[in-house]
Design a protein around this nucleic acid. Sequence first.
DNA 1: CGCAAGGTTAATTGATTATTAACGCCTGCA
DNA 2: TGCAGGCGTTAATAATCAATTAACCTTGCG
Lengths: 225, 225
Amino acid sequence: MSRQKILLVDDEPDILEMIGFNLEREGFEVFTAPNGRKGLELARAHTPDLILLDVMMPEMDGMETCRELRDDARLKNTIIAFLTARNEDYSQIAGFDAGADDYISKPIKPRVLISRVKALLRRGVPAASEMPKRDLSGIVIDKERYVVYKEGVELSLPKKEFELLALLASQPGRVFTRENILSNVWGNDVIVGDRTIDVHIRKLREKLGDDFFKTIKGVGYKFEP
Amino acid sequence: MSRQKILLVDDEPDILEMIGFNLEREGFEVFTAPNGRKGLELARAHTPDLILLDVMMPEMDGMETCRELRDDARLKNTIIAFLTARNEDYSQIAGFDAGADDYISKPIKPRVLISRVKALLRRGVPAASEMPKRDLSGIVIDKERYVVYKEGVELSLPKKEFELLALLASQPGRVFTRENILSNVWGNDVIVGDRTIDVHIRKLREKLGDDFFKTIKGVGYKFEP
DNA sequence: CGCAAGGTTAATTGATTATTAACGCCTGCA
DNA sequence: TGCAGGCGTTAATAATCAATTAACCTTGCG
């Protein structure tokens, strides 16, 4: 197999050099671009396996670039990871449903980055996605802050509601039985009635929209973008 | 809390020892059995928290064992994970609906297995699912999502219909008697009239196409791709 | 033809979930 | 301390949808 190609897009030359150097040392073929437009060009020219995209860039930012990348059939399946400054306001990101596969916070130690990159390439899916959980639906769940963004609008849900949402959304599409839900959100030894779950589901539907939560009668609930 | 108990059932002594050793080193209380029958005994004796079940075994295979385990009230809630050889033909896996909670492919690195096991015990829900999706001539059955795709189009069937389909499709071509069907989909102690099955079959025919369900008069029904 | 086995349809029953309101229980705060 | 408000829970009721049945129809075959 030929070397795997990585495209690195960031407006800071230092970052490009530093990360690029480390990736190359690991045997990857690295392309770098200082802005979205150039990045797009290179992506189309080389169809990289992975694209690391800084979110904040002049001229054409990460979000915009990502969307355009996703519009290119040949890049549909390319893994795209956003590089974000730590503590960046996720509500900025939440609004855009650009289609990234993972978020990586800067600054990041080269070794850590390398292993994230390798994991992404190996699995095709974000490993332990560091940050906001995208759900291809304008809904972002930030466990760290106990906050949910719906189309960029911040909602702060009560604990149970949040945890229920987080559980369902952890595997969109998967049906969780009431049993599943109880043992995960409430714990194995707590006894609460079945209706309790319904009520919380209802509150979530109220706040996030009915369509996201599907009832499978006699089976359970699932979250669908 | 006392140590969590894990029952490991596999006919290969090497595997038993290897996995068993690793699980014990992690602090679990491990029981091992070389076949389904022994496994069942041990399960009843110790009510483990998790059962790892090899699918292919002489004497009493994983599927069969699983079904029997599920029939035992005290083991109703025990987590059962199947160990399957990679690339095993899932169409062979009638245990599709035998009631397994997760599928784990062998060979698997001990470290990976351990983390899967821990996740299962912690969450009671499989993390990244290797649950088989049955694909037969344009019909895909996804038990995890409780959804069926017909030529890519998503259909969500009611519980009984879904289970009936899953049963028939678990062994395409094989005839299931009405008795078979009743005991698998409805359970041994439920009494329903004869026409009930017909009606469900009819609904399936309506939704998936007449041709898939063949009636063998005086015998039963079968599913044919 | 007449029976046996299934097929069809629509109505009925039954189970499960949705909804709403109410009740404690905390927490924060004057 | 006592009040206000948010949260989690439950109970009661309504609404929804699946499951079942009953009644009748069709088909194949002796």
